[in-house]
Computed example of a mutant assay.
Amino acid sequence: MPSEEGAPFEDEVVEVPVDGNLDLHLFHPRDVKDLVTEYLWACRQRGILDVRIIHGKGTGALRRTVHALLPKLPEVESFQSASEADGGWGATWVRLKAG
Rank of each mutant, 00 (worst) to 15 (best):
M1T: 06
S3A: 14
E4M: 12
E5L: 11
A7L: 15
P8R: 14
P8D: 08
F9R: 11
F9W: 07
D11C: 02
E12H: 14
E12V: 04
V13C: 09
V14P: 03
E15T: 09
E15V: 13
V16N: 12
V16P: 04
G20K: 04
N21D: 10
N21W: 03
N21T: 10
L22F: 09
L22E: 03
D23T: 01
D23Q: 12
F27V: 08
H28M: 08
H28Q: 11
H28S: 09
P29M: 08
P29T: 11
R30P: 02
R30F: 14
D31P: 07
K33P: 04
K33W: 10
D34W: 09
V36Y: 02
V36N: 06
V36M: 05
T37I: 00
T37E: 06
E38W: 07
L40A: 05
L40C: 01
L40H: 04
A42N: 11
A42Q: 11
R44S: 14
R44I: 05
Q45N: 11
R46G: 05
R46M: 15
I48T: 01
L49S: 02
I53R: 05
H55L: 12
H55E: 13
G56V: 06
K57G: 02
G58K: 14
T59L: 14
A61M: 12
L62S: 06
R64E: 15
R64I: 13
R64H: 13
T65I: 14
H67M: 13
H67Q: 12
A68E: 15
L69R: 06
P71F: 08
P71A: 03
K72Y: 02
K72Q: 15
L73D: 03
E75N: 08
E77C: 01
E77I: 01
S78E: 01
F79H: 11
F79E: 00
Q80F: 11
Q80V: 07
S81H: 10
S81V: 11
S83G: 12
G87N: 00
G88T: 04
G88H: 08
W89F: 15
W89T: 12
W89D: 15
W89H: 15
G90H: 11
G90W: 06
A91Y: 01
A91Q: 09
A91M: 12
A91K: 01
A91P: 00
A91V: 02
T92W: 02
W93H: 10
V94N: 00
V94M: 01
L96V: 05
K97D: 00
G99L: 10
G99C: 06
